[in-house]
Design a protein around this nucleic acid. Structure first.
Lengths: 252, 252
DNA sequence: TCCGCCTGTCTCGGATGCGAGACACGGCGG
DNA sequence: CCGCCGTGTCTCGCATCCGAGACAGGCGGA
C-alpha cells in the first residue's frame, strides 16, 4: 500500500497546473485539491525549490517550472518508441510535405507523442502531450481497427463513452464497429473536420512483435487544397511509414 | 521553511530517473538518493499510480512514465516564450533550410527549449531539454555577449567554471571576455565543432523589454558543405529572427 | 481612511508517516 | 539441489509531518 501522501499531493499539484492554461493562485490550488492552505504552501515551496513550479510574484500565481519541461524531455529521449519513430516520421514529412504525427492509445484516448511540421506549413500549435478521443482521429481509428474486437467493446462499454467534436464521430458501438470495418477493408483510416475544421488526416497503425498496435501514424492536410492524386500519394506514404515502423518494432 | 520531505524525495526520484539513460532498479534508486528501501518503494508506487513512473516488471526496473511527458508538454504549451518563439523559429528554418534551435540561459548553461528540423536534414537527436555550457554554443555566447559584464563575471567566478568539449572553448574569464567582445563587434556569435564535430552554428540573442537577453536563437549547418554566400544568408536570417523575437518580447 | 480579503509565513500538538527490519518468492551460480 | 542475493510487500513504534489557526502585510473598494 502506497504510503507517501505528500508525494502524491505534490504530483496532484503538478497535474492540476498542467491542466490549467494559466498560472494559479495558491488558494485556488488548495481548494481544488482539498488540501490545507498551509500544506499547499509547503508543497509549492518544495516544488519551487526543485524547479518544477515557478512563482510569479507580481501576479501572486504559481505555474509549472522549467524542471517540468526537462522531465518531459528526458522521457522523450528515453522512450524507445519515440526514439525509433522519429526518423520514420521525418521521412514521412519530407516525402508528403505535410505535417505528421505519432500517437499511442491510452484508455479511449490517443496521446500525441510526436508531431513534426513540414516546410511551409503552419507553425505547430503544439499538440504533443495532448489527448483526444481515439474514435475522432484517423490515427486512433487505425489503432482501434486492429485491436481485438472484445478490447474495443471493453473500451467503449456504454454510450456515455462516445464524445463528439464539431458534431462529428460515432455515437454507438455499432457505428464505431462499422467504421472500423471500413478502415480494415480500406487499409487506412481517414478523418475530416473532426479535430480541426478544414483539415483531414490519413492514418495507419504500426504493429509490435505481438501483432498488436503500438502506435498510430498520420498525416494531416487541408483537404480542399489537395488533389486526389496527391492524396493517393499521401495514403501510400502513410501506409509505408506504418509498415516501416512496424518492422522496426519487430512485427512479423 | 518547506516541510514536505516525501514530496521532495518524489521529485528527486523523478530527476534521478531523468538523468539516467536507462530504467533503474529500485535498490539503485534508494542507494543513489540515500533513501530507505521501503520508503523508496512507497514513493515509486505513488509515482507509478500517478503515471509519472512505470515499472518494467520483466526487467525489474523503473523508468519515467508517460505523465512525465504530459507534464513537460503542458509546460511547453504554457510557457509564453516558447509560444511566442515557435513561429519565428519555423520561419527561420524555412528560410535557411537548416535546423534551428532556441535556448534560454540557466546558470552557466543554456537549456535547449525548441529545436526544429529542416526538410531533408537529419532527424533531430532530440536535444530539447538538454543543457550545455553556454560558452561552448553560439546561442549561449550570443546571450553572454549582451549580459552585463559583472553578471558574466559572477557566472564564471573561477577557472573551475570553464569546461571544454572536443578540446574547444575558452579556459579563462579573459579569454571569454575577448570572445564576447568579438561577438558584440560582429553582431552575432559563431561556433564550430564545439558541440558536434563537423557542424557550425550562428547565433544571436533576443532581448526582452528590459534590454536583457531572454533567449538565444541559432541555426546549425555542416560548415564544409555551405558556401560563404549561403553562410552570409544564414547569418542575416538568424539576426532577423532574433530581432523579430526581440520585438515580440517587447524590446525597444 | 478604514475594513475586509487575500497572500505568504509560521507555530505546535497529536496523528500518522517513516524507516528498520522481517518475510516470501524467484533467479542464478556453484 | 541449495544457498545467496535481489525484488517487492508488509509491520509497527516513535519521531516528525500535517493542518488548524494565528499573524503580518498589501490591495482594493466603500
Amino acid at each position: 500500500m502506497s504510503n507517501a501522501p505528500a508525494a502524491a499531493q505534490a504530483l496532484a499539484v503538478l497535474q492540476l497546473l498542467a491542466r490549467h492554461a494559466e498560472p494559479m493562485p495558491a488558494a485556488a490550488i488548495a481548494r481544488d485539491l482539498g488540501l490545507a492552505r498551509s500544506s499547499t504552501y509547503h508543497l509549492l515551496n518544495v516544488l519551487r525549490d526543485a524547479g518544477f513550479v515557478s512563482h510569479l510574484g507580481d501576479d501572486q500565481r504559481w505555474g509549472l517550472g522549467v524542471a517540468a519541461f526537462e522531465l518531459g524531455s528526458a522521457y522523450s529521449r528515453q522512450a524507445p518508441l519515440q526514439r525509433i519513430s522519429r526518423p520514420v516520421l521525418s521521412r514521412l514529412v519530407d516525402r508528403t510535405t505535410h505535417n505528421a504525427h505519432l500517437v499511442v492509445l491510452h484508455g479511449r484516448d490517443v496521446l500525441y507523442v510526436i508531431e513534426e511540421r513540414a516546410q511551409g506549413r503552419p507553425s505547430l500549435v503544439t499538440d504533443v502531450g495532448v489527448r483526444l478521443p481515439a474514435q475522432l482521429t484517423a490515427s486512433g481509428l487505425a489503432i482501434l481497427a486492429v485491436l481485438p474486437p472484445q478490447q474495443v467493446r471493453a473500451l467503449f462499454a456504454s454510450r456515455d463513452d462516445f464524445v463528439q467534436r464539431h458534431g462529428r464521430g460515432p455515437t454507438s458501438l455499432t457505428a464505431l464497429r462499422s467504421e472500423l470495418s471500413q478502415v480494415r477493408t480500406r487499409g487506412y483510416a481517414i478523418e475530416q473536420d473532426s479535430v480541426t475544421p478544414g483539415l483531414a488526416s490519413v492514418g495507419a497503425a504500426a504493429l509490435d512483435h505481438n501483432g498488436l498496435p503500438a502506435a498510430g501514424i498520420a498525416v494531416t492536410y487541408p483537404y480542399e487544397r489537395v488533389a486526389p492524386a496527391e492524396r493517393e500519394e499521401v495514403v501510400d506514404a502513410v501506409r509505408r511509414a506504418a509498415a516501416d515502423l512496424s518492422r522496426r518494432l519487430g512485427h512479423r
